[in-house]
C-alpha cells in the first residue's frame, strides 16, 4: 500500500478529555511503529481529568523526526465539532481535516484543505456505545489516508483488549465502520 504523503505522516488529534483522543493517538502510534523507523506521540492536556481541551500530535516517518511539535500537520482529526475553528490554522495546505459533525459551528475559514465531516458520534450511539467514536474517527483517518495498514491497528486493538473480548469486538466494529466511511468519502 502506498502512503499518500510518502515516507512521513503527521496528524494532530484534538477534542475534550474523555473522548479517547490520546488513546486513538497511542493506538495509531503503536501500529505505525511496526512499519516506520521513527514514531512520536506528544500529548497536551490540562489538569482536568474529563472535559478539558485535549490534543495529541502523532508523527511517523522513516526519516528522523526533527521535532515532535509542529505548527501544521498533514491531517487533523477533530473529535469535537465546535473545536474545528480553533484548530483550522494548524492544517497544512492540501491537508485533510476529518471532523466530527456533531457540535460543528459555522464560520470556518475555507482554506486550501479538504474537510470531511464524519457523523461518528451518531454512528457510535447507534452501535450502542458513544465511547467508541474515537475508533470510528481513527478508522476514517486510516480509510482516507492509508497512512498505516488497517490490520496493524487491529493487531494493536487485540493486544490492548486481549482480556476484554466484548470491548475488543465493539472497538473492532467501530474501527471497521470508520474505515468504510473513510474509503467511501475517498471513492
Amino acid at each position: 500500500m502506498e502512503e499518500k504523503f510518502g515516507s512521513r505522516n503527521d496528524v494532530i488529534m484534538a477534542g475534550l478529555g474523555g473522548m479517547g483522543v490520546l488513546s486513538a493517538g497511542k493506538i495509531l502510534s503503536l501500529a505505525a511503529l511496526k512499519k516506520y523507523r521513527y514514531v512520536s506521540w506528544l500529548p497536551s492536556y490540562g489538569v482536568e481529568k474529563r472535559g478539558g481541551l485535549c490534543e495529541c500530535t502523532v508523527i511517523f516517518s522513516n526519516e528522523e523526526i526533527a521535532s515532535p511539535i509542529i505548527d501544521r500537520a498533514q491531517s487533523l482529526i477533530i473529535f469535537e465539532g465546535s473545536q474545528l475553528k480553533a484548530f483550522e490554522p494548524r492544517i497544512l495546505s492540501g491537508g485533510i481535516i476529518l471532523a466530527e459533525s456533531s457540535g460543528m459551528e459555522d464560520g470556518r475559514e475555507a482554506r486550501d484543505y479538504k474537510i470531511i465531516e464524519v457523523p461518528g458520534l451518531e454512528i457510535a450511539v447507534s452501535m450502542g456505545m458513544g465511547q467508541i467514536n474515537n475508533l470510528i474517527l481513527l478508522g476514517s483517518y486510516v480509510g482516507v489516508t492509508d497512512a498505516v495498514p488497517p490490520e496493524l491497528i487491529e493487531e494493536e486493538l487485540e493486544i490492548r483488549y486481549k482480556t476484554r473480548k466484548e470491548v475488543l469486538k465493539r472497538n473492532q466494529e467501530a474501527f471497521r465502520r470508520g474505515i468504510e466511511l473513510g474509503r467511501t468519502v475517498e471513492g
Binding site: Y36, V39, P43, P68
Partner: peptide
C-alpha cells in the same frame, strides 16, 4: 515536561 510526556521509538 515536553520530553517527559512525549513518547518516541
Amino acid at each position: 515536561g515536553i520530553l517527559g510526556q512525549v513518547s518516541e521509538s
